[in-house]
Nucleic acid binder design. Sequence first.
DNA 1: TAGATTGTTAATCGATTAACAATC
DNA 2: TAGATTGTTAATCGATTAACAATC
Lengths: 205, 205
Amino acid sequence: MSREIPHIVVSRLPIYLRALEHALGEGLTCISSQELSERLGVSAAQIRKDLSMFGEYGKQGRGYPVASLAEALRRHLHVDKVWDVVLVGVGDLGHALVRYKGFAERGFRIAMAFDKDPAKIGTRVGGMLVEDSRTLARRVQEAGIQIGMIATPAATAQEVANILVFAGVRAILNYAPIHLTLPEDVRVEYLDPVIPLQRMTYYLG
Amino acid sequence: MSREIPHIVVSRLPIYLRALEHALGEGLTCISSQELSERLGVSAAQIRKDLSMFGEYGKQGRGYPVASLAEALRRHLHVDKVWDVVLVGVGDLGHALVRYKGFAERGFRIAMAFDKDPAKIGTRVGGMLVEDSRTLARRVQEAGIQIGMIATPAATAQEVANILVFAGVRAILNYAPIHLTLPEDVRVEYLDPVIPLQRMTYYLG
DNA sequence: TAGATTGTTAATCGATTAACAATC
DNA sequence: TAGATTGTTAATCGATTAACAATC
């Protein structure tokens, strides 16, 4: 119930929220830390400790009210509103991202998409106009967009990231298989699919 | 230099490997823990400590030989061979995954793809035949495939995972936005893109 | 050789767990 | 009320960092 929550705690909140939303879909009104624990593989003690950093949401003997806890988590995560996102790179992956329904359902709207390939610029992907990368900085700045998704090849990802940050973006989801070096007040998350695969093959004979 | 490496150390190896492969592409033959640290945002001490758990690869005064360290990491991660992977779910995301070049380049081959939509079964995606989900267990078992990628909607992901495990799969990369409950000797990694976005919005006003 | 960087130890730091009084 | 479960404390556990002798 204080400020400066450790990042590792913050990083678990979206997992809790997702589980709560599923529970809500099943019609549950109350859920214990024990039940949540079984559903997501985090210990009950840890769940209680994490949640207690944000307030006293539980009721002894009953557990946590699903709907209002989900609401509270959405508020803490700032996903109680819709965020506009800019997508850079409209290859196969970019296509899939534009079409992915899960973003809109959970608070994110791809508002603009950019590519530098003249063959793609001006075309439409799932109703979305593909714009010229050369106008990226200006357009993002004017729209005040704070979140970027990079789905370009690795070779151009750092350059794109620099432009996004210059344009005011403060959080980047990077699908390119490369580490980005950016000012420390810019958040970056990585989604190179090969990394988790290699993390698993370590354990396979 | 002993057995039982902590998972947190294992989880960093693919990151090191990726950085080494980039360095190799730049023609570097030797790289210090300091230089690696700057390239990937892990402290130099940590890099040295992690690597020392696998052997003495460095040379005092010079650093680590890029090519042979990369080779050693590939060996430890078991990616010095090509792994066959089965994909379940050939929607937009599945399409993108089939076409993604990065898998083959880094040791993974999507060998089979399945869907349960009759309209998709029998069609080809990027040269790959989409097979009927009902034959999933048999086909995977016969081929001896050990790695699965789930790109189905959340509602069917657990069921698909159960079938994969039954068929002998021991590692699952799950794109569906749901936690999978599986035997503890099965490795699971999650790639729900909304989770990292929500981890970042916490820090945005 | 002189300078640089490793591998490793000990110290620090932080995260997780176990346990239980409080209380719904 | 009786049973269940929270919020929190203290103890444990594990990971990171700082520092430096060894050595290329």
